[in-house]
Amino acid sequence: MFRRLQPDDSSATIYFDGRAIRCRPGESVAAALLAAGVDRFRTTPVGGAGRMPYCMIGVCFDCLVEIDGQADRQACLVPVADGMTVRSQDGTGRFGIQ
C-alpha cells in the first residue's frame, strides 16, 4: 500500500503491538507504521471501526496510538526513537478524544 521512495536506511526499531518494525530514525511513527503495512492504528469509540492516518499533519486525530505507555498520541507528529513501544488504541484512550 505505502512504500518509501528512497533506499531504506532502517537503523531504528520500534515495537507495534509486540511486532518489531525496522524504521528510519526521525521519521514519524505514522510513516514508519504505514511503510510496514499497518492498516489499523485505533478503533472508534462507537462501533469499533478501524482508523488509520488521514491528514498526516496533526489535524484529524485518526492516528491516535499509545506510545511508551502514554495514550492519545498522534502518531503523525511523534518522531521515531529506537526501542519505542507503540500500541494500537481501542476507543477514546484516556482523554476521550473522538
Rank of each mutant, 00 (worst) to 15 (best):
D62W: 09
M84V: 05
T85A: 15
G18Y: 03
G18H: 07
P7L: 07
T13S: 11
G47V: 08
Q89Y: 05
T43N: 00
G69R: 09
I14L: 14
G91R: 04
A75K: 02
V65Y: 10
R94C: 12
G18V: 00
P53R: 05
C60M: 07
S10T: 11
R87V: 07
R3K: 12
G83V: 04
Q6V: 13
C63W: 04
F95Y: 14
G96H: 00
S10Y: 12
Y54A: 08
Q6K: 13
D72M: 07
A71G: 01
A36S: 12
D39F: 02
V80T: 00
R4K: 11
A75S: 14
G83S: 11
L64V: 06
L64G: 02
M56I: 06
E27V: 06
C23K: 02
P25H: 10
A31S: 14
V86F: 10
R51F: 05
G50A: 15
A30C: 09
A31M: 08
M52V: 04
R19W: 06
V65W: 08
S28M: 08
C76F: 04
A12P: 02
A36G: 06
S28P: 04
Q74T: 11
S10D: 14
A31K: 11
A20S: 14
L64E: 04
R22C: 07
A49I: 06
G91H: 04
G58I: 03
M1G: 10
E66N: 15
V59D: 14
D72F: 07
M84S: 05
V78I: 15
L77I: 05
G48E: 07
A31I: 02
F61L: 09
V38G: 05
